[in-house]
């Protein structure tokens, strides 16, 4: 029994060492990224019970001509921001990405995302043990997912 437990542990350790993300700090949150609704995704990613905030600045086009490449730029002005997550509410899997900031990184991200159709682009922020959120509708004329 002991031996089995030991082997199991050793095997798990070996697996952890071999898995591709081993050099990276966190484990990819499969549940959150597979969630079909943004409520479920926010819950799985620990961004539930979010309070609306005007201190999350979202720079994005009102109308995106190509849903495959929608530029978004987000700054959190909430003191103590440690992470933020992006959600495209009507995507088949709404969770887009999760960003954790440390050691001098400003709570800012600019990137390009895919949006399947016109929907709210939502940002959730963790700061001082609380969760804040802000959303903005982006109209999409040609969808970027599936196809």
């Amino acid at each position: 029994m002991l031996r089995r437990t030991f082997l199991k542990g050793a095997f798990a350790a070996a697996l952890a060492f071999l898995k591709p993300g081993a050099v990276l700090a966190s484990v990819w949150n499969k549940a959150a990224f597979s969630a079909k609704s943004r409520f479920e995704a926010m819950l799985d990613a620990g961004y539930n019970d979010a309070e609306e905030s005007g201190d999350i600045l979202i720079k994005a086009p009102e109308i995106a001509e190509d849903g495959a490449m929608v530029p978004v730029e987000v700054t959190s002005n909430i003191p103590g921001t440690t992470s933020m997550a992006f959600f495209a509410e009507k995507n088949p899997n709404p969770m887009v990405a999760d960003f954790a900031f440390s050691d001098g990184a400003l709570p800012y991200i600019s990137t390009h995302i895919k949006m399947a159709e016109t929907s709210v682009f939502r940002v959730a922020v963790k700061a001082n043990g609380k969760v804040y959120t802000a959303g903005r509708e982006i109209k999409v004329t040609i969808g970027g997912c599936g196809g």
Binding site: F33, M69, N93, V96, D98, F99, S102, H112, G144, C145
Partner: peptide, 12 residues
Amino acid sequence: TVLDMQWGVAIS
């Protein structure tokens, strides 16, 4: 480490 990111399929 300054930024630790997880991405889904909706990054372009």
